[in-house]
Amino acid sequence: MSDLSEKDIEIFIEAIGGYFKQITHEAASIGVAYLAQNAFPMNDFTGLIKVSADYTGALYFSAPSAMLRHLLTVMKETDQSEENLLDAVGEIANTISGNARKYFGENMVISTPEKIIGIPADLNRSEKNYAYVIIIKWKHYSASLVVDIKRIR
């Protein structure tokens, strides 16, 4: 059970929304939001942030390559290599962790974002917790934000 408050989760969503708004001048919106115990909707490229201290768990931002390519195009980046697509998803994860650091302060220690191609390896979660899945829409693409964070203190 993720016992983050609504406000806590909004911080992550706002970070992504703000990123798209700033870079592309086109806001990202929420498509749907639900709970998931497993079978997280993962896309081609994923930025992963692990948290510790008062919290435990991880946060994933996973986007399809087409979306990232489009994002790079908007940013006038012609090199659309896999590496650059990974960097783009990492950048968004970085923005999320930056905002989270500012909001949660020392109560949440946030790892340096990991960039993953394909399905993340450590998705086999032992606990039967519910994670929040939020589908983020930008243009006609859908990315997913999975907030699998639990407060332990």
């Binding site: 059970m1 609504e6 989760i9 929420i30 749907v32 709970l35 929040y132 899945v133």
Partner: peptide
């Protein structure tokens, strides 16, 4: 609104808890 959509799983989570 985004927040209204987000409130749904949050409330659901509270009930499940």
């Amino acid at each position: 609104e985004a927040q209204e959509i987000l409130s749904l799983p949050v409330m659901l989570s509270a009930l499940l808890e």
